[in-house]
């Protein structure tokens, strides 16, 4: 796939250059006595070279219609909703507290990704919250943020 390889090539070209440049802020050392920047510098350069080779190879290829990025029309909605809810979990963990945010997270995903009935949603969310509380807090004694509401 031409488009994919071009995007990937540019991404890794950037990563390689980035590491090669950044590694110079620490001691690179010499061949006799390589320092902490030695590997990041050379690996970064190598990655940039390989990416350039991929870009060069891809550039001269004919454009072909490959499979689309998302297999179904509404796939992107589900994927981005899952990613968004992972980010939201992280942001809301402190303010809402472990129990509430866990319940909401599971409920949201069960209800809206592959929509289930409200009854199923409530039961799954409640059971998984109780289960998580029991395994991680009661058995493994892990401390979680309590949240502004105090639980």
């Amino acid at each position: 796939m031409k488009r994919n390889d071009l995007i990937g090539g540019f991404f890794f070209l950037g990563v390689g250059i980035f590491f090669a440049v950044y590694s110079r802020s620490v001691d690179i050392g010499t061949m006799e006595e390589p320092g902490p920047g030695f590997l990041p510098l050379w690996a970064g350069i190598l990655l940039a070279l390989l990416s350039a080779a991929l870009l060069g190879k891809t550039f001269f290829k004919k454009f072909e219609q490959g499979e689309p990025f998302f297999p179904e029309g509404d796939s992107w909605k589900r994927v981005s909703m899952v990613v968004a809810s992972l980010i939201a979990y992280n942001l809301l963990l402190k303010p809402l507290g472990f129990i509430l945010v866990t319940f909401l997270f599971v409920a949201f995903l069960v209800r809206f990704i592959f929509p289930q009935t409200w009854l199923r949603t409530a039961v799954t969310a409640a059971l998984s919250t109780v289960g998580a509380q029991f395994v991680f807090v009661t058995l493994l004694e892990i401390q979680f943020p309590k949240g502004l509401l105090g639980f």
Partner: peptide, 9 residues
């Protein structure tokens, strides 16, 4: 649909 939220949590 019920399994994956549990794996994520």
């Amino acid at each position: 649909s019920i399994l994956f939220p549990l794996i994520l949590i």
